[in-house]
Amino acid sequence: MLKVSDLRLREVINVVDGRRLGPIKDIDIDVENGTIRALVLNPEGGRMFRMFGRQEDIVIPWENINKIGIDVILVELEQIAYNYE
């Protein structure tokens, strides 16, 4: 069984283009069903680029996660969904 803290240590890679998407910032959990709905990521570049403008979070629905490995999480995203906060 994986802990949320273990997930946050893994890199998230998009298998469509091989791009690193950034570290996991948050996890959207459905508390009624006890399932994960989505991963919320800080885009690559993190805080440094936030100084120069607003950087939106990347939201990855659970259905788009292909594989959770020891070091990486592989996701399949044709188009990246952004969360405008």
Rank of each mutant, 00 (worst) to 15 (best):
residue 83 N to Q: 14
residue 26 D to N: 15
residue 85 E to L: 12
residue 10 R to G: 08
residue 13 I to Y: 02
residue 61 P to R: 04
residue 11 E to T: 09
residue 23 P to G: 07
residue 31 V to G: 00
residue 64 N to P: 00
residue 85 E to W: 10
residue 26 D to V: 01
residue 62 W to G: 00
residue 37 R to F: 00
residue 51 M to S: 09
residue 44 E to V: 12
residue 50 R to C: 12
residue 14 N to A: 06
residue 1 M to Q: 07
residue 28 D to E: 15
residue 31 V to K: 11
residue 59 V to H: 00
residue 45 G to S: 07
residue 2 L to D: 11
residue 35 T to E: 15
residue 13 I to A: 04
residue 12 V to K: 03
residue 29 I to C: 02
residue 71 D to Q: 10
residue 66 N to A: 01
residue 41 L to D: 04
residue 79 Q to P: 00
residue 27 I to R: 04
residue 25 K to I: 00
residue 62 W to F: 10
residue 12 V to S: 06
residue 14 N to Q: 09
residue 4 V to F: 14
residue 35 T to H: 03
residue 52 F to S: 10
residue 68 I to K: 01
residue 6 D to V: 01
residue 61 P to Y: 02
residue 13 I to H: 03
residue 77 L to I: 08
residue 76 E to N: 14
residue 20 R to Q: 08
residue 47 R to T: 06
residue 17 D to F: 03
residue 24 I to S: 04
residue 24 I to C: 05
residue 33 N to W: 02
residue 9 L to Y: 03
residue 33 N to E: 15
residue 55 Q to G: 00
residue 85 E to I: 10
residue 47 R to P: 12
residue 34 G to W: 06
residue 15 V to R: 10
residue 54 R to M: 12
residue 59 V to K: 14
residue 53 G to I: 02
residue 66 N to R: 15
residue 58 I to R: 03
residue 84 Y to R: 15
residue 78 E to K: 14
residue 85 E to K: 13
residue 7 L to C: 06
residue 9 L to N: 14
residue 14 N to V: 04
residue 9 L to S: 13
residue 61 P to E: 02
residue 71 D to N: 14
residue 20 R to F: 10
residue 55 Q to S: 12
residue 62 W to N: 03
residue 41 L to C: 05
residue 29 I to D: 02
residue 60 I to Q: 03
residue 84 Y to N: 11
residue 84 Y to A: 11
residue 19 R to N: 12
residue 11 E to Y: 12
residue 7 L to K: 07
residue 30 D to A: 07
residue 41 L to G: 06
residue 45 G to R: 04
residue 12 V to I: 11
residue 68 I to A: 03
residue 20 R to I: 01
residue 28 D to W: 08
residue 58 I to V: 15
residue 45 G to A: 05
residue 44 E to C: 02
residue 19 R to C: 01
residue 53 G to H: 08
residue 28 D to S: 11
residue 32 E to N: 13
residue 69 G to V: 02
residue 21 L to P: 02
residue 67 K to Q: 11
residue 16 V to F: 09
residue 24 I to Y: 07
residue 59 V to F: 00
residue 66 N to D: 13
residue 36 I to W: 01
residue 32 E to V: 11
residue 53 G to Y: 10
residue 44 E to F: 07
residue 53 G to F: 09
residue 37 R to M: 08
residue 15 V to Y: 01
residue 70 I to D: 14
residue 80 I to G: 02
residue 25 K to F: 12
residue 80 I to M: 06
residue 28 D to P: 00
residue 39 L to Y: 10
residue 2 L to S: 05
residue 7 L to Y: 07
residue 17 D to Y: 05
